[in-house]
Nucleic acid binder design. Structure first.
Lengths: 205, 205
DNA sequence: TCGTGTATTTACCAAATGGTAAAAATTTTA
DNA sequence: TAAAATTTTTACCATTTGGTAAATACACGA
């Protein structure tokens, strides 16, 4: 049994844990935590259910592992917001990074959204310990830019919320977007143009 | 057995169906479709499980009834967007109505979000038949305002997406918002100020 | 190639869950 | 008030689902 407190994981262990987590991401993001079944994950991974429970303690363990890994990826675009860069450029680049993530990592976006939607029952601690400090730090940076008259005086907290909401919308509500714009249309370029124009104009002092 | 194709529902029938739907909204919005159980809904409603199945055909029937009823409420703020009103005023009033709904009907917002997040498996048809025509109609109205030079030239589709995203964020991601702003803080007033400033500035020609 | 630890499968189980049948209780109607 | 209709409860059932024990197959270093 591959115990967490043990030595180096074998090649097979690394590969199978990766395969399982990828399958789980697929299933959890589509069906939600309760909607997902170990059998679905097993099928998606091409393994048997008991074999999956050989690598993970249980369903919750898999979900928790996914969320932990995700948090890092998720915070990264905000981490890169450079206090010493040009405020307009920095914020617009941040918007772009978030929009790119919505396109490239829609499963991760939906996994995250589903967890928050249900009150973050398994991620509350991570939000407090990882997200909040970073959020406060970057809000302070933006507040500094505002005080220096570099950008328009908008509430930094709500500004960030608006950026998150507007960008993640294209991943989380993709089903609705595709109905309203047409099944085949790829909204990424037009969304990018729109958000650039919108936030660009909004930020001018 | 209260058949849908039958005569007038009794007083008891009307009351109990209402009680059940309210309980179901509470449970479905918190736990999602799969996460909700008939036992939870029954307890919340103060009825027994078989008694609930006396009023509804099954779990899916309850969910579907909720979604159908919700759609009307949900579209209402957009219906009220008046083509003959002042463009700026109309759009800002629409933003305000949506934000008020996020505060007053968070359960409905989350029920809707959860359904879309999972690919709208039970609501796809409603989106096509109810939402899309209205969306197209109002996009045309906004496009008209833009052509007339009354507001800034933004893509109407994405403008509406941005409004939806920014307002519903406060209901759907309430768990995250409350962690980041402080458990007790009520973000409604500050959000309202922010969104007014943001969209107001954005819309100026 | 043999033996040892690792990986996988087979065969289960208990709890949860959506749902039903029929009896009992209650309300309404004649 | 008695009969008829409606509402509620009791006692179940079949399936799904997360999880386990033990036997089997496999990989790999000596």
């Amino acid at each position: 049994m591959p115990d967490g407190t043990q030595k180096k994981p074998s090649r097979i262990q690394k590969r199978n844990r990766r395969v399982i987590l990828d399958a789980a991401l697929e299933v959890f993001s589509k069906q939600g935590y309760r909607g997902a079944t170990l059998d679905q994950i097993a099928t998606e991974a091409g393994l048997s259910k008991p074999n999956i429970l050989y690598y993970f303690q249980g369903k919750e363990d898999i979900h928790l592992t996914l969320l932990s890994q995700l948090m890092e990826t998720w915070l990264d675009p905000l981490v890169e917001l450079d206090p010493d860069g040009d405020p307009q450029t920095e914020i617009l680049a941040y918007v772009q990074r978030k929009l790119d993530m919505a396109r490239d990592l829609p499963r991760e976006s939906r996994l995250f959204a589903g967890e928050i939607l249900q009150g973050a029952p398994r991620m509350g601690p991570h939000l407090e310990s990882d997200l909040k400090p970073l959020f406060d730090e970057k809000c302070a940076v933006i507040a500094g830019w505002i005080d220096a008259g570099k950008i328009a005086p908008l509430d930094p907290h709500h500004l960030i919320f608006s950026i998150w909401a507007a960008t993640q919308h294209y991943a989380d509500f993709a089903a609705q977007v595709s109905v309203l714009l047409g099944k085949d249309a790829d909204p990424h370029q037009s969304a990018s143009d729109h958000l650039s124009a919108m936030f660009g104009k909004m930020l001018r002092p």
